[in-house]
Amino acid sequence: MIPFDLFYYRPDTVDEALQAYGDLVRQHRHPAFYAGGTEILTRSRVQDVHIDAVIDLKAIPSLRIHRDDGQTLQLGAALRLTEVADLNLWPLLTATADRIADYTARRQITLGGNLLSVLPYREAVLPFLLMDSAKVELATQHGLQTRRFADVWDTALNLNPGEFLVSLRVDSQEARNLTFRSHKMTRLDWIDYPLVTIALAQPASGRVRAAFSGWNSYPFHSSTVDQILSDVSRSPQARAADAVSNMPMPAVSDIHGSAEYRQFVTQYTLSDMLTELEES
């Protein structure tokens, strides 16, 4: 229950959604774009978010798109995580997204909702951090715009007020020709926020790339860490230890684990994943 009187809009087109947002702002209301709703509903219940209108994007066809034409793989932002997994157009994304929350929750959570979450984890970001070709399609007041993922991301996807994510694109060949591993480590239960989630990817001829979630307050990828992990003259154990010592920010201590424990778990998980990746 959202504990206040809510305006609910369900547009059928991108233009209608943008128009609705503009109209609501002009009426001095506080709208939010909505799709899966899990985060808005939970945060509203504890009055951690102050909105009085939602614009439900699920009925807009371009946000539900899923296609791979052999050159570009495109996934709509309003696809549910279970739909992303069932379609399995990009196995690395499937492997990562399929460990977010639990099955029933993933039937609600959307790809765009996870990427734009205010929570630190946002594990569905990891595969996109590993792809040079990743792009986002945004609905803006100036029309649809396609931008490089890396240009929009620093610690979060930076969208201006009134903009929303329509779809994500990656190069089909780049996505298909990756060897990858994705692993989520939790403190105790299978269903929990991660101590650390690690995605490793390696093109047929190229260096290892790694992205991390749970280590600190936002998911990240580091070229320095990639360089360390790609030095095959050293053992996976040595590379993993060196990578953990050269992370771009310190590990966080929180209810899930201390910084020291997180470092320990990250190191041995990374070592195991490197071994698996290089033996595959």
Partner: peptide, 25 residues
């Protein structure tokens, strides 16, 4: 909060946590 599942119902024969969906949806 979408964690416990005690409120699960079926929408089109598939499980949904009913605390995590607006009735208007």
């Amino acid at each position: 909060n979408g964690d416990c599942g005690a409120c699960t119902v079926l929408i089109e024969q598939m499980p949904v946590k009913s605390c995590m969906v607006l009735t208007v949806e």
